[in-house]
Amino acid sequence: MNAVWVITKKELRTFFDSLTAYILLVVFLGLSGFFTWLYGSDIFFVGQATLQPFFAVAYWTLFFFIPALTMRMIAEEKRSGTIELLLTKPVSDWQVVLGKFLAALLLIIIALALTLPYYFTVMSIGPVDNGAVLSGYLGMILMSMVFISIGLFSSSVTNNQIVAFLLSLFIGVFFLIIFSVLANNFTGATGQFLSFLDLSSHYDSISRGVIDSRDLIYFLSLSYLGLFLAEMSLAKRNIVE
């Protein structure tokens, strides 16, 4: 566990040393703030004190924001060869993947924490459904976990950051859009299965305030799967033919 934390600390420091963290925080807050407060069907048009518009916007911002964060995490180490140094230290592949995952997750949590002023603002407008806000943030964190693990997996299969970025967007699009579109075209078990794979429906039900174990299982197992695949792709060098 100690090794995981050492890696997490190092990754977080890299985020903040290299401006990545600041730029991405500004972009995330800027975009989600702009669409929440200033543009389109913003928070003032809803007619009730709710953060729902913010969650709807952040959903898409995170979709782009997270791959940009995770794309270099493993790909860059593979390109520069530091992965060899890291993996010959007494750490397992899993600890490396998990350490990086936690670092990205912590940065996302920081970004989300910085949107708390939105909540206080809305609270001053009218009575807020605190449960819905809480579950909205929970949904956002769960969804981020899935995207981070997809991003880490993409980063682990290539040593090119751009490829990693595009690949994680590509995989992400399936979970956000394509599975739900496909689900509409199928009936029976296939359709049900595809609609279960669709991330947006699970996210919607959580952000509406319904915390169902099925949704939790969906997010957690998908995150685990991504991390597991990332670990496998690191461990590929060990395969005995």
């Binding site: 890299t14 520069s80 060869g81 530091t82 060899e84 140094l85 010959t88 230290k89 007494p90 750490v91």
Partner: peptide, 17 residues
């Protein structure tokens, strides 16, 4: 791994640290 100190061939390092 705990007992080994290793200097790889191309000496990869984190350049921004």
């Amino acid at each position: 791994k705990k007992k080994i100190g290793y200097l790889p061939e191309s000496n990869p390092l984190y350049l921004d640290v």
